[in-house]
Design a binder for these strands. Structure first.
Lengths: 110, 110
DNA sequence: CGCTTTTATCGAAGAATGTCAATATAGCCG
DNA sequence: CGGCTATATTGACATTCTTCGATAAAAGCG
């Protein structure tokens, strides 16, 4: 029996991964990315009815995706009269980049 | 009947969202994030057996997650003898940041 | 060549997710 | 108030994902 080694062990910290995964999971659907891109391009608030018109989804499904984005803190919304207007959270891109940087040490980014 | 408007329509381009979503989906699991962080901290290749030892998952499940990361282009692997060593793809952080920037216009990042 | 170790694949079970129709809620207008 | 429009919620269904046990494949060892 030969004593073999593959590599020195490295610890894993598992506390922060859940919240990071929640963020990335919210980004892991093409329709939600379409919603975010539309918001970014508009550079302004966008009405729900506009998402519903632009996406190949029924209204409840759009509402469902908007909720997931809201829960992830990626968008905010405001009701004005009958309509509800959505807006990118101010720090969306920063949050994604910060999360990436906290996950991967700085030197990897170079 | 009053003619009402909510907001001017904006187009949605849906071609790139699928591949972007695939990337984010691969990042949307805490165990896969743990694998990536371990690789980043090690700043070197890591043996599969080390992941298996560090994660609360059975060996086939670890292998499954490694495959998803491989398919997403986030890691590469190399077999040497009995062992297989994984390494972060050189452009992981850049790819995440670039994808974010292509999704959200530059001014949002400021 | 068999035996052992390491990793990958297969197949199945349970959980989570995306989607829709139906319905509820909120607010405008007459 | 009563009807109409916009959005959210609920419940059901199909698909996908995570996980595991069983098994296969790859490679060193005797």
């Amino acid at each position: 029996m030969s004593i073999q080694q593959c590599c020195p062990p490295v610890e894993i910290d598992s506390s922060a991964h859940q919240s990071r995964a929640t963020l990335f999971k919210a980004l892991g659907d093409p329709h939600r990315l379409a919603i975010l891109e539309k918001l970014a391009r508009a550079d302004d608030e966008v009405c729900v009815c506009d998402f519903t018109a632009a996406l190949p989804l029924n209204q409840p499904t759009v509402s469902h995706h908007l909720r997931i984005l809201r829960d992830a803190g990626l968008v905010t919304c405001e009701r004005r009269g009958t309509w509800v207007y959505y807006r990118l959270a101010s720090d969306v891109a920063k949050r994604i980049v910060d999360t990436t940087q906290s996950l991967l040490p700085q030197r990897v980014l170079a």
